Amino acid sequence: MTETTTALVTGANKGIGREVAARLAALGTTVVLGSRDPHRGAAAAAELGPQVHPVPLDVTDRASVLSAARWIDEHFGRLDILVNNAGTSVSLAAQAPSSVGLAAVREVFETNVFGVISVTTAMLPLLTRSPAPRIVNVSSGLGSLTRMTDPEDYFTSRPPMAAYVPSKTALNSLTVQYAKELRGRNILVNAADPGPSATDFTAEFPGLTRTAADGATVIVRLATLPDDGPTGGFFDEHGPVPW
């Protein structure tokens, strides 16, 4: 990667997304910081330095996604790295499979799955102009069917969730499908498990000691893979995560 590399990180005004933006900028990457709230996005970009540029981006709003793609095209002409980080959930109490409302499930899938499709589709023409394009979908170990069904894994003791967890399993599958289609275009597509990190997103899980910076590690690694790097995989900071 060179100093002219351009990256888009969605949902990057706080938490792990912000740390990914900061780390990529520190590597010399020009970072487009996508944020649903333009004021928070602008404030975060200003704090992270002149290599970070805010753009309003609501991944559930097609017009917003297309507008962000046009902005990147006008200002940089291409995109080298896409980090689909924006994610959402609803309260644990609202996700019990036996009583979950479809509206809650749709809300989560709109961002965590459909939003990824919308953004990736819009950015692909820009990515194809890059000599070494990379796509990283920020998933979760909770999306691993293997870990969820292993009686020895601590995930089996986590509360059952009918929205967030299935959305990340679907995202993992989607990652494989993108990798299959885009392999011939030299676009490496992988899913990242940042691990349980103490952010606003995990407020319902007190006691976490890993930081957002810890969670960003594997994402940045996958975003800066060499040409012979893997594609269609699911990784955490230690290596492959079982599907």
Rank of each mutant, 00 (worst) to 15 (best):
G15D: 08
G15M: 04
I16R: 02
G17Q: 05
R18H: 03
E19Q: 14
V20S: 10
A21D: 00
A22I: 02
A25L: 01
A25P: 06
A26Q: 14
G28R: 01
G28V: 01
T29L: 05
T29W: 00
T30H: 06
V31F: 01
V32E: 02
G34Q: 08
S35H: 08
R36A: 07
P38I: 00
P38W: 03
H39K: 14
R40Y: 01
R40M: 09
R40S: 12
G41A: 08
G41I: 01
A43E: 14
A43M: 06
A46K: 07
L48Q: 02
G49A: 08
Q51A: 15
Q51F: 00
Q51D: 14
V52G: 00
H53D: 05
H53V: 14
H53S: 11
V55W: 02
L57W: 06
T60H: 02
D61L: 05
A63Q: 14
S64L: 10
S64R: 04
V65T: 02
L66E: 15
L66V: 11
L66P: 03
S67R: 13
S67T: 15
A68R: 03
A69R: 14
R70K: 13
W71P: 05
W71E: 10
W71D: 13
W71M: 11
I72D: 09
D73L: 08
F76Q: 12
L79N: 02
L79Y: 02
L79S: 01
V83G: 08
V83P: 08
N85R: 04
N85F: 00
A86C: 06
A86R: 04
G87R: 10
S89C: 11
V90Q: 04
S91P: 06
A93M: 11
A96S: 13
P97L: 11
S98P: 01
S99R: 14
S99D: 13
V100E: 10
G101D: 13
G101H: 13
A103H: 11
A104I: 04
V105M: 12
F109C: 07
